[in-house]
Design a protein around this nucleic acid. Sequence first.
DNA 1: ATTTATTTTTAGACAAACCTAAAAAAAATT
DNA 2: AATTTTTTTTAGGTTTGTCTAAAAATAAAT
Lengths: 221, 221
Amino acid sequence: MSPNLSVAEENYIKSIYHLQQDAESVTTNALADHIKTKPASVTDMLKKLQLKNLLNYNPYKGFRLSKEGNKAALNIIRRHRLWEYFLVNQLQFNWDEVHDVAEQLEHVISRKLVDKLDAFLGYPKFDPHGDPIPDGNGKINYQQQMPLINLPLNTAAIITSVQNQSSDLLAFLSNRDMHIGTKVEVKQKLNFDNSLEVKIKNKQSFHVSEQVANAIQVNPL
Amino acid sequence: MSPNLSVAEENYIKSIYHLQQDAESVTTNALADHIKTKPASVTDMLKKLQLKNLLNYNPYKGFRLSKEGNKAALNIIRRHRLWEYFLVNQLQFNWDEVHDVAEQLEHVISRKLVDKLDAFLGYPKFDPHGDPIPDGNGKINYQQQMPLINLPLNTAAIITSVQNQSSDLLAFLSNRDMHIGTKVEVKQKLNFDNSLEVKIKNKQSFHVSEQVANAIQVNPL
DNA sequence: ATTTATTTTTAGACAAACCTAAAAAAAATT
DNA sequence: AATTTTTTTTAGGTTTGTCTAAAAATAAAT
Ligand SMILES: [Mn+2]
Ligand SMILES: [Mn+2]
Ligand SMILES: [Mn+2]
Ligand SMILES: [Mn+2]
């Protein structure tokens, strides 16, 4: 069933999974970029993953995970997000400090460990950044959400997730009291740089760049 | 200060640390045996560790960890034992199920993680097998203890630790209600195979081989 | 439709960590 | 003291995952 995967293989699989969310098929360069390696190295690994039936790969055309590859990816993501939840909710890490440690912990392989951790944490549904945690069967429930930049003016919405693992960005948001579950409204759109003026209840409104407004996901009330 | 170590290097360092406890200096074959690799591979790694100033190595004569190597070893052992404690006391693992998972978790490198885990667990002094947990400065307090096989007849003693990670042995002991803290007495020594007849309060006495009696450490009352 | 630019793959190297087989050193026997 | 055995090291390979440089395929521009 599930072949033993090296840390490198797991990292490739996880990256491909994320990249194929917003694209028909993934390209060699995009993956090389994402994983901070060279395209030649990617091509090598693609062949290995195809040989293990984890990938559907058409040379020069692109690739996607196979059914089995997807399952493997969801398992890795499950571990990553459960550990992030543990670090924040049990060990008192801040949400901007957990990603790098979780990048290591996700590669610890033990079905029993993951299941017991899940139970210990009370079967959480979302990680500290609002991302859904796949269950033991690889089932994942995506939330209904849209980027803050698409939210109409003066419409109340709840922050549901942040699609960026950068420690700097997360600390920036904490600093302005923007967390998962916080109610926000867009007061103004500035056309020259697509930035926003944003307001949180009982607080002075503040300014948010296009990049940040793209990363913040919300659900209108 | 502390150079980045690969998983392989950490495993060598930890093994050398354990082997040098009961020997003046460690031999290539002993280490190869312990780490389940070939002597030629050990020699390769010894050179690398010496180059990193973690080892004092005299070709053909033997080797020991340097001061810095010792410090690295105690750090790895600290992580291993804290995770074992976590697995048993928080995740409800049995003491015979934790070693292999801890072998993986011990290689997750984050000072903050270890310190927060330690605090979360309440700064435990001993792991589930009775082994002392080094503190953040690498200080370790060995208990006063002796192998059960050396305990005089009809002398009550407390089990302080089990010097063997074998899942089978630990399950065998659990099965006979022998745990850390259990009070035992040796009723009889059988000279032909150095086995013992052992008694625990309110229980039928039972038989224990020389190997087991060597692994069980006790502290006479 | 050519030419040019970009993307992707191939070819050949390298470091880490392992291996087997042979050589060298040390230890044990006679 | 010489010989045999054991231990350790060296020499030369292999696998995994990376790299650079060159070749091939595809896409874009003229
Ligand atoms: Mn993360
Ligand atoms: Mn996350
Ligand atoms: Mn252990
Ligand atoms: Mn232990």
